[in-house]
Nucleic acid binder design. Structure first.
Length: 473
DNA sequence: TGAAATGTTGGGGCG
DNA sequence: ACGCCCCAACATTTC
């Protein structure tokens, strides 16, 4: 008896281990068609950003290599998901499609439509959870409503405990390889004209194997000091797993399991896991409040009067605000597709409070420039900083970019790396070059207004203006 | 996972 | 020795 092949539709689960949909597919004994579809219409207006396209290219290449080593091949197709799935059903006689759930509103809409259409045709569709410890609808408060506060949410999660649906079985998969596939390079996911991603490849190695290596390295050498070191952008104190997590090269289940296996619970382990918890909370919010990327979670912010100056936005984007810690962050982002979390909070506070520019603008910029851009995390965290989100920072919590720099980058390693024109300035003025004497500036080779900008706004004045504006709410 | 303003305390300099 | 003031250090309140 010939078995029809089964489609394993990869989306944000680009790995082969601890993959519930793949396990289920293996268990059927049917030949598997590993498929990835580049569908650029479905996610409008949140079409994948440029930095993520770079990551996707390398992640797909890596996944294909891993599949080839097991006798398989990743089938690449471009176009409307529905049309391509239909084509393959016709080409192969496939009767079933397996996938891992996505949680973005546009993904849910797409998948719901596909389910309806295909189930009517008698096709078997099975969806699995491969990217969240807790389904966003699973965690509820006593009234049966979604949580709006992180602490309570995470407490409930920890009591409930995650389920581990599958571990890797010893079954070896059969792959169906006689399908034509696009050439990955023809998708032009990587830069074609200027190579803006030059700095990316020095820092990042997309793919499942390097995701695991990174987790191992983190657990052996940095986890113990995570609670303190995580706030210092000048040293590598965080896991830097975010882009791997976003693309599903590693799952939060694997991280959870690994941590509980290798380390006893202590403040650093709890602190790291609670960051995974924030990711869960963001998905919980996005699922239950799908307008999160577009509109303020707190309605009273709908009428907030944001400024609208393209010039300030552009100076912020390009790292020319005149505040060294802010500029360092924005340049790290541009050059590597990533920014340290502490600095994300500082630059976001600067945009929304000091410049009073809409958080949506910051969100958009992060969306195109971050390799770890994630709709849920991006939306929830921008709203958190702006003060209009769930469990948000209160409006009067305004980061002082000078103090933050002095506190978390005391030796100036971070600023000197990303704002090299200030590197000869002494620590005492590195975070506030405008206060240095002209002799001091001279000696460091700094000419304010020429080699490095004057501060775009005065901190005290900007703080007062923001307090005034927010107080009107 | 704030910062600034305001309040309190206690040691030491000084007449 | 004593009272007074200054101010650093810390605590509390406010935005």
């Amino acid at each position: 008896m010939t078995l029809f092949p089964l489609i394993l539709w990869f989306r944000q689960d680009l790995r082969l281990h601890h993959h519930p949909a793949l396990e289920a597919a293996k268990a059927t004994g049917q030949p598997i068609i590993p498929l990835y579809i580049l569908d650029e219409g479905a996610s409008d207006p949140w079409k994948m950003g440029e930095a993520q396209r770079w990551w996707l290219h390398h992640s797909l290449a890596s996944l294909n290599k891993d599949l080839e080593s097991q006798g398989g091949k990743l089938i690449l197709r471009r176009g409307s998901s529905a049309q391509i799935l239909k084509n393959i059903l016709q080409e192969t006689g496939t009767q079933s499609i397996y996938w891992s759930r996505c949680y973005e509103p546009f993904s849910i809409a797409r998948d719901t439509g596909l389910k309806k259409e295909f189930i009517e045709q008698g096709i078997t569709l099975k969806s699995f959870n491969s990217s969240l410890l807790f389904e966003p609808w699973e965690i509820q408060n006593q009234q049966g409503h979604p949580y709006k506060v992180f602490t309570q949410f995470w407490k409930k999660c920890l009591i409930q405990g995650p389920r581990f649906p599958t571990f890797d079985s010893t079954l070896s998969p059969q792959f169906y390889t006689s399908l034509k596939s696009d050439d990955l390079t023809s998708w032009e996911l990587t830069p074609t004209h200027t190579n803006w991603a030059h700095g990316f490849s020095k820092v990042w190695h997309p793919g499942e194997a390097s995701a695991h290596k990174k987790l191992e390295d983190f657990c052996t050498s940095r986890l113990a000091t995570y609670k303190e070191a995580r706030n210092q952008p000048g040293c590598i104190g965080t896991s830097r797993l975010s882009p791997h997590l976003h693309f599903g090269e590693i799952s939060p289940h694997q991280i959870w399991h690994h941590l509980h296996q290798k380390s006893s619970s202590n403040a650093s382990v709890e602190s790291f896991l609670s960051e995974i918890g924030w990711r869960e909370f963001c998905y919980h919010l996005l699922y239950n409040f799908p307008s999160l990327p577009e509109r303020p979670f707190q309605e009273k912010f709908t009428t907030f009067e944001w400024e609208n100056t393209d010039e300030a936005l552009s100076l912020w984007q390009t790292g020319k605000t005149g505040y060294p810690i802010v500029d360092a962050g924005m340049r790290e982002l541009w050059q590597t597709g990533w920014m340290h979390n502490r600095v994300r909070m500082i630059v976001a506070s600067f945009l929304t409070k000091h410049l009073l520019l809409p958080w949506q603008e910051g969100q958009k910029w992060f969306w195109t420039t971050l390799v770890d851009a994630d709709l849920a995390n991006n939306a929830a965290n921008w709203q958190w900083v702006a003060g209009c989100g769930a469990d948000a920072a209160p409006y009067f919590r305004i980061f002082n970019p000078i103090l933050q720099g002095e506190k978390f980058d005391p030796q100036g390693d971070y600023v000197r790396q990303w704002v090299p024109e200030l590197k000869n300035l002494s620590n005492s003025f590195l975070h506030k070059p405008w206060e240095a004497s002209s002799a001091e500036l001279n000696q460091a080779g700094v000419v304010l207004g020429k080699t490095y900008p004057f501060p775009l706004v005065n901190h005290e004045q900007a703080r007062k203006r923001a307090l005034e504006r927010y107080r009107h709410l």
